[in-house]
Write a protein that binds this DNA or RNA. Structure first.
Length: 738
DNA sequence: CACCCTCGAGTTCA
DNA sequence: CTCGAGGGTG
């Protein structure tokens, strides 16, 4: 064969290989991103693995085809990939799952029947992470491997060394010559959020959930990375955590139960979970399951269920295992927090400040225990960034515990009928052209604050809200009835100025459209919420227009609101940046609305907690003529804009009390206190009632139902107290607690 | 110039 | 209850 011919063959091979490498690279990245970012498994692990190996093979044959950002060089794959295979000394079993309490009690009944006796159950949280097998030989960590298929896993020893809390050497004495410890590697929720925030800021991909982030981080390869890349990789690994939950092969262990095993592992310096509990009955195990079902967010890591194990080790042997899973343990899986649903439309709503917010309208879907139909999309940039089209199937989840969030589209399920969302140029409620408040703002606002129905309705509702004047009957529905009734044509309230002058006559003939309970759509019927309904057989009364109790109640509540504290009045006025905290500071300092109006920018900014911007916002607000009208009409109707007995402008008397100088956060339901009451009590005792936990927080008073704040407090080492201790603290100060 | 905090908005349920 | 945005403070 002539030399040129050989060259030609090689060229042809290279060209073909390049085409294959390119195609594989695109497909693998597509699948990888779907998996890590949207949690979708589009092909089996085996299929993915086959593609990765082929890509690796080609890149080895033609090194010139290997690019810096090839999937083989960056993050590894999802299952067994390019790490060296390791055979576990003892097969790593998985757990059988149950998905309901009934299935669980059936399992427990069978266990007790097979054991011939009552058994103790060890309940623990099922961490949503990656199973890991650590091999210690003579007390030294010699190998760390992922589960893989249970028999053979991947060797990730080098990466595991960078994870905090995994000892390279066991503490204490008497370790067996060879022991395999099983655990779970995971991203703590807080660290995960921080990671994704950094990834987003750097324009990198964000992970769909902590498990994928952990998986991606653990499978990073150091080859081909420069110093900065290595540093980043190590930093990311150091944020991972591990908890151990069992032991592999071990003859004649010196312990008799699973719980004693944990104590032993702990004494060796291995991290064990704080959340496990040994219970005597299946009913108690059910309580454990239900408790954490409601408190999933009070734990520093994600959990996808509860693992229940028979505690006694000799029963493990008796009960044995199937080929896949032991019979002495079961995983109770919580309902998924992510589901797919159809994005029917993207609609824009206008809030009380005029901000236009697009939100997703979806086919009702059950997520984490409730039915969701809507979720905010924040602004048009977020809609773009998420890449959702109207008509898409989207991934929906509950962020935190409550807030529905659209993660993104399932691109594979598109059929071409989807259309892009276009941000309207005009206010959907009043037609005024939308514009950014100031140049460069992403948010668009409706500038028609005086008469845009959405804004007036929003502000009226705000006046009645708990943080402002707390008027019962003046919520979303009441505000809509007063500002946008079907009848009369001129609504009782054109702006909030008329609120305190409302009379029964204004209310009785209000008609509002009835909405369907299920769909929220208008039914075409109307009703009169403030007119007494005539019962069947009740004689035709007078002229038919008799007020209902709702009407008198509402007017009574409005009357009571006229003399509420000055700070509540300030909040009710919807002045930019003036919420409960700033309003309290202003009210304390000035004592009356007149004094605030008369103050200069400098005098306003002298108040603790008020700066130049809030001062400007106040001055600008007072300068608007229809705002003055609100004040005049409210005052004429008897609204009190001063704190009786206040000495006048000046530094507010510093409050003395048991809590002087202390910052306290109240969360959950505290026995003996309402949410508001706890806040008031803290302030009355001279303390600062903060809304979020930080380093500066001195105490977190937590009751049942406490959410993430509790976790945050634990993380920061802030002292946590219960309702009884909280009451004591309020009365006698911090010294009484010790 | 970092934090840390408050504001404002959206959401759902008992 | 949570997030982003942006203000206030050390």
């Amino acid at each position: 064969m002539a030399e040129s011919e050989v060259q030609q063959h090689a060229d042809a091979d290279l060209t073909a290989a390049k085409a294959e490498v390119d195609a594989l690279t695109i497909r693998v990245i597509e699948l990888r991103d779907a998996y890590y970012e949207r949690d979708e498994e589009l092909v089996s692990d085996a299929e993915y693995d086959r593609m990765m190996r082929r890509l690796d093979e080609l890149e080895r044959m033609f090194p010139e085809l290997q690019s810096q950002d090839s999937p083989t060089q960056t993050v590894g794959g999802r299952a067994a990939t390019l790490f060296d295979p390791v055979t576990h000394a003892e097969r790593m079993l998985s757990l059988d799952n149950v998905f309901s309490i009934d299935e669980f009690t059936a399992w427990a009944a069978k266990v007790e029947r097979d054991s011939g006796r009552r058994v103790d159950y060890l309940c623990e949280l099922k961490i949503d992470g990656l199973a890991i097998n650590l091999r210690y030989e003579n007390g030294r960590l010699t190998s760390a491997a992922t589960r893989g298929d249970g028999v053979v896993g991947e060797d990730v020893t080098e990466n595991v060394k960078f994870i905090n809390g995994i000892p390279a050497r066991l503490e204490g004495e008497g370790h067996p010559p060879l022991v395999e410890v099983r655990g779970e590697i995971f991203f703590p929720v807080e660290a995960f959020k921080a990671l994704n925030a950094e990834q987003a800021a750097a324009g990198e991909r964000v992970f769909a959930n902590p498990r994928n982030a952990a998986s991606g981080s653990l499978r990073q390869k150091s080859e081909g990375k420069n110093e900065a890349g290595l540093d980043l990789m190590h930093r990311r690994l150091s944020r991972l955590r591990m908890l151990v939950h069992g032991i592999g092969a071990w003859e004649n262990p010196p312990v008799a139960s699973q719980s004693e095993t944990y104590a032993l592992l702990k004494s060796w310096g291995l991290p064990t979970s704080e959340y496990f509990r040994v219970v005597k009955t299946a009913e108690a195990a059910v309580e454990f399951i239900e408790y954490y079902g409601e408190h999933r967010d009070s734990v520093s890591h994600e959990i996808d269920g509860i693992v229940i194990k028979v505690d006694e080790l000799y029963l493990h042997e008796e009960l044995g295992a199937t080929s896949r899973a032991p019979r002495w343990a079961i995983a109770y899986k919580y309902p998924p927090e992510q589901v797919n649903t159809k994005l029917l439309d993207i609609v824009v709503s206008v809030g009380r400040t005029g901000r236009a917010t697009p939100f997703a309208v979806m086919e009702p879907a059950r997520v984490a225990g409730s039915v969701v139909r809507q979720a905010t999309l924040h602004n048009q940039d977020v809609v773009k960034a998420k890449g959702v089209l109207i008509g898409d199937t989207v991934v929906l989840r509950k962020a935190g515990d409550v807030i529905p969030e659209v993660l993104g589209p399932v691109v594979e399920l598109r059929d071409g009928t989807e259309r892009e969302f276009v941000m309207p140029t005009n206010c959907p409620e009043c037609g005024t052209p939308l514009a950014p408040a100031k140049e460069g703002d992403i948010d668009l606002r409706c500038p028609n604050s005086r008469s845009c129905p959405a804004q007036v309705r929003g502000r009226v509702e705000h006046v009645g809200s708990r943080g402002a004047l707390d008027i019962e009957g003046l919520g979303e529905v009441g505000a809509a009835a007063l500002t946008q009734p079907d009848y009369p044509e001129v609504p009782p309230l054109v702006t909030e100025a008329g609120l305190f002058a409302l009379t029964l006559d204004d209310l009785v003939d209000i008609r509002v459209g009835v909405r369907d309970r299920e769909t929220g759509l208008r039914t075409g019927r109307t009703e009169t919420p403030y007119q007494r309904k005539r019962k069947k057989g009740d004689p035709e009364g007078h002229d038919g227009f008799v007020p209902s109790s709702a009407a008198t109640k509402l007017l009574d509540e409005i009357e009571k609101a006229k003399t509420k504290e000055l700070w509540r009045m300030l909040v009710a006025l919807s002045i930019r940046h003036v919420g409960p905290v700033a309003a309290r500071a202003l009210a304390n300092y000035f004592g009356s609305l007149d004094a605030i109006r008369a103050a200069t920018r400098e005098e306003l900014a002298a108040v603790d907690g008020v700066g130049g911007i809030i001062a400007d916002a106040l001055i600008e607000w007072f300068a608007v003529d229809w705002h003055q009208e609100i004040l005049e009409q409210w005052a004429a109707a008897g609204v009190q804009f001063a704190t009786p007995g206040h000495p006048g402008p000046g530094a507010a008397a510093s409050v003395d009390g048991p809590l002087a100088g202390l910052t306290v956060v109240a969360t959950g339901s505290l026995e003996g206190f309402t949410r508001e009451g706890a806040l008031e009590a803290i302030i009355a005792a001279g303390g600062k009632a903060a809304s979020s936990v930080s380093k500066k927080t001195d105490f977190v008073a937590a009751g049942p139902g406490a959410g993430s704040k509790l976790g945050k407090a634990e993380e920061l080492g802030v002292r946590i107290i219960d309702a009884a201790q909280f009451a004591l603290l309020l009365k006698e100060g911090p010294a009484a607690l010790d």
